[in-house]
Amino acid sequence: MDKTWNNKAWFLVLPMLVLVAFSAVIPLMTVVNYSVQDTFGNNVFFWASTEWFEELLHSDRFWEAMVRNLIFSFIILAIEVPLGIFIALNMPKKGWGVPVCLVLMALPLLIPWNVVGTIWQVFGRNDIGLLGYYVNALGFNYNYVQDPFDAWVTVIVMDVWHWTSLVVLLCYAGLVSIPDAFYQAAKIDGASRWAVFRYIQLPKMQRVLLIAVLLRFMDSFMIYTEPFVVTGGGPGNSTTFLSIDLVKTALGQFDLGPAAAMSLVYFLIILLLSWVFYTVMTNYDAER
């Protein structure tokens, strides 16, 4: 059969192109535009070439925020993934406990970011916060407003509280899809609890775990609202992650050029990481 060529068909994708243009391409181009210019207000711009990019890549502030962010992502992954697997393994597989657990697990995910931040901001305060007050009453000197370590602990515990559920639910979905026959066969083969986990449960969870790691890494790498509400990036700059730094630069100092350059670099990093994950996952699928 001959294919019919009709270039008018391009009009069918026009609405989508317009939408994408207004939602993504045009704003992005504006950022590109800012990143190579300097302005002192009044809509007067001066050509700045790659000055902002060079400055950014030599700025300690940027690299420190980046390192902080990577450490943060690494820590929360190291906690949330094993913890999520552990909880998922111990959740009931049938009976009335299933809906109860699922609802409990889904609750933190339904709470808006800034509300989570506010909850923990109040919860951790050592004058009126339930957690902060009693931790101090037990003799620990805990004050997330002044102590960088306490601030980190608070932000990490908050993230674990908020997002471990996601890992749990994904792992749980992987686990319940394993037919009973696998466990029965394992019993007959005399497999230990560890062997069941290692050779049945983990392989079946591998795919969802990959997705969980991807989502949690991306989200934590772009985290903004919760630490901003709790610590505002402080004390000092100790919890200033990339996005908080970006907002400080763009809206606090109103340095549009450097902020635009930073946005682009940030965007490219995220894009690169997404690509790496995507490649890993598709290769993994192809291998199957």
């Binding site: 696998f182 007959i188 392989p203 079946k204």
Partner: peptide, 18 residues
């Protein structure tokens, strides 16, 4: 099951994927 030393083949093939 283990102590009885029985082999059983199920309806759906059970293999260890990895």
């Amino acid at each position: 099951t283990q102590e009885r030393n029985i082999a059983q083949v199920f309806q759906f093939p059970v293999i260890y994927d990895t």
